[in-house]
Amino acid sequence: MTSLRDWGSTLGKWTGRPVARVQKDSGDPEVGRIRKAARAAEWTAVREILEARPESEDRTELLWAVADTEEVERWMPGVIRAEPDAALPRIVAGFRFITWGWEARTGAYAKDVSRERFELFHARLRSSEEWLYEAAEREPGWISPWYGLQITARALSAGPVVARRRFEATVRRAPHHVGAHQQYLQQICAKWGGSHEEMHTFARDSVLAAPGGTRLGSLVPTAHIEQWLSLDEGEDTAYMRRPEVTRSLLEAADHSYRHPDFERRGSWLGVLNTFAMAFSLAGERDAARECFRATEGRVTESPWDYLNGASPAMAYRKHRSAAGR
């Protein structure tokens, strides 16, 4: 098993600097394959790719790749009718109706979204919940339906009790599910009715309760970035430069990507990119440079889109240069 320190040792011998490019598939070639199959409405191929990725290994990235594909909602109902007892088509429909709902709402501020768009948004999310509940009934041990239901709970303002129950339902089936924890962290953010204190406690406790090398490590920098976003200019920089913020980032890094059991699989690129941005904002150039080196120029849209929504790669390059990489 190769640790980040091993990668750093190898990469340190190379004097070039890779071109920074946004990585749409997190390094997983199956993401591109399943997108192509979804665009062609080839359900057999989509199903084969999903079934080859066991629930225990987290299918959510593949499901989102299908869900982000236009017109999936047109042909999935036919698949469901043809396979009335199958859970998988219902999960795909559930995920698609989430993204289709957000397409109706758009990314505008709530005050700028029309009543008609909000009604369509909510209608599609309610349809998503129906598909996901039906999938959960057919496959009680599966994780994906409950993960999807976490998202609809927040979008439909179902409240903290429902949100907590759905998070718990997900982690009962997969205690260290990265997506489930990311969704619950958003749920308890101050902007969604929670608090900074609750958010930071949840992030730290979740990371330290997981085995060494956990990809949950990104929860800690994500929480600090969330608080940084909530502050006015000047206050945001002062917050990120606090010694206790740096200490918490280093603690999480040691239990996550710096641990010898950390593996380059799943959402590993997101972990490194999130730490890279947080360490950059904290002024920790050495730690940031370590993360930039390990990403090898592969950029994830989040969290860099917070700095430059039009070009996450440009934000990445700017901070990589500032770190001396």
Score class of each variant (00 low, 15 high):
residue 1 M to Q: 09
residue 9 S to A: 15
residue 9 S to H: 12
residue 9 S to D: 13
residue 10 T to Y: 07
residue 10 T to F: 12
residue 14 W to D: 01
residue 17 R to A: 09
residue 22 V to C: 10
residue 22 V to P: 11
residue 22 V to W: 04
residue 23 Q to R: 01
residue 26 S to R: 07
residue 27 G to K: 01
residue 27 G to L: 00
residue 27 G to C: 03
residue 28 D to W: 00
residue 30 E to R: 08
residue 37 A to Y: 04
residue 38 A to N: 02
residue 40 A to R: 13
residue 41 A to W: 01
residue 42 E to S: 15
residue 44 T to P: 08
residue 46 V to N: 03
residue 48 E to C: 02
residue 58 D to P: 07
residue 60 T to R: 05
residue 63 L to F: 11
residue 65 A to I: 03
residue 65 A to F: 02
residue 66 V to C: 14
residue 67 A to E: 03
residue 75 W to A: 09
residue 77 P to Y: 06
residue 80 I to V: 15
residue 80 I to G: 09
residue 81 R to M: 14
residue 83 E to A: 12
residue 84 P to D: 01
residue 84 P to W: 01
residue 89 P to L: 07
residue 92 V to P: 09
residue 93 A to H: 10
residue 93 A to I: 06
residue 94 G to A: 11
residue 97 F to K: 10
residue 98 I to P: 03
residue 99 T to I: 13
residue 100 W to L: 13
residue 101 G to F: 09
residue 102 W to P: 07
residue 102 W to L: 14
residue 102 W to R: 14
residue 105 R to N: 05
residue 105 R to L: 09
residue 111 K to W: 06
residue 112 D to T: 04
residue 112 D to R: 06
residue 118 F to Y: 09
residue 118 F to M: 08
residue 119 E to W: 00
residue 120 L to P: 01
residue 122 H to C: 04
residue 124 R to S: 13
residue 127 S to A: 12
residue 131 W to M: 14
residue 131 W to E: 10
residue 139 E to C: 13
residue 140 P to E: 03
residue 141 G to R: 07
residue 143 I to D: 00
residue 146 W to S: 10
residue 151 I to L: 09
residue 152 T to W: 06
residue 153 A to M: 04
residue 156 L to T: 06
residue 157 S to K: 08
residue 161 V to K: 08
residue 161 V to P: 05
residue 163 A to T: 13
residue 163 A to F: 04
residue 166 R to I: 03
residue 166 R to C: 06
residue 169 A to Y: 03
residue 174 A to I: 00
residue 176 H to K: 01
residue 178 V to G: 07
residue 179 G to I: 02
residue 182 Q to P: 01
residue 182 Q to I: 08
residue 185 L to Q: 14
residue 191 K to P: 05
residue 198 E to V: 09
residue 199 M to W: 05
residue 202 F to G: 07
residue 202 F to K: 05
residue 205 D to Q: 14
residue 205 D to W: 06
residue 206 S to L: 00
residue 208 L to G: 09
residue 208 L to Y: 09
residue 210 A to H: 10
residue 211 P to L: 12
residue 213 G to Q: 01
residue 213 G to S: 10
residue 215 R to V: 12
residue 215 R to G: 15
residue 220 V to A: 11
residue 221 P to M: 02
residue 222 T to D: 01
residue 222 T to Y: 04
residue 222 T to K: 03
residue 228 W to P: 11
residue 230 S to C: 06
residue 232 D to I: 02
residue 243 P to L: 00
residue 245 V to S: 05
residue 247 R to C: 02
residue 251 E to N: 14
residue 256 S to P: 12
residue 256 S to G: 13
residue 258 R to G: 13
residue 259 H to E: 06
residue 260 P to N: 08
residue 265 R to P: 00
residue 269 L to C: 00
residue 269 L to Q: 02
residue 270 G to K: 00
residue 272 L to Y: 03
residue 272 L to I: 05
residue 278 A to C: 13
residue 278 A to N: 10
residue 278 A to Y: 10
residue 282 A to G: 14
residue 284 E to Y: 04
residue 287 A to N: 10
residue 287 A to V: 09
residue 287 A to L: 12
residue 289 R to N: 07
residue 289 R to C: 11
residue 291 C to A: 10
residue 296 E to D: 06
residue 299 V to C: 10
residue 300 T to S: 03
residue 302 S to L: 05
residue 308 N to K: 02
residue 314 M to F: 10
residue 315 A to D: 05
residue 316 Y to F: 15
residue 317 R to K: 11
residue 317 R to S: 15
residue 318 K to R: 14
residue 319 H to A: 03
residue 324 G to Q: 00
residue 324 G to A: 02
